[in-house]
């Protein structure tokens, strides 16, 4: 029998995979992939809560997360293309114009 805890543990595992990606990736495009993993993990959690508490709010929030993720990708990719045209690289370490 699959309970809410199973789904929440899965959510936590997926979220941690995404977090590891955010911490260790240095390429901007792959960093964006990791954030997608984070958003997807949270979506699974919302859907599970929605089912086991018989409440539709969780699914609503999942829809809005999907909308946010779609617009984030559109803006992010546009910015990356501009950056790549200027610098020719997508490495995070190349963003050091302030030399702090």
């Amino acid at each position: 029998m699959i309970t809410l805890s199973h789904y929440l543990i899965l959510t936590a595992i997926l979220f941690c995979i995404g977090l590891v990606g955010v911490y260790r990736r240095k390429n901007l495009l792959l960093l964006l992939f990791s954030t997608e993993i984070l958003l997807n993990a949270v979506n699974v959690g919302f859907a599970a809560i929605s089912k086991f508490y018989a409440d539709l709010s969780g699914q609503m929030f999942a829809f809005f997360i999907v909308a946010v993720a779609a617009s984030e990708v559109a803006v992010g990719l546009g910015l990356f293309i501009v950056w790549y045209k200027r610098r020719g690289t997508l490495d995070v370490d190349s963003m050091q114009s302030m030399h702090g």
Partner: peptide, 19 residues
Amino acid sequence: AAVMLLVAMISGIILAGKK
């Protein structure tokens, strides 16, 4: 959310569409 998607679409086109 609909307005946000529209803004994102326009910004994506403008950012990526230059040159």
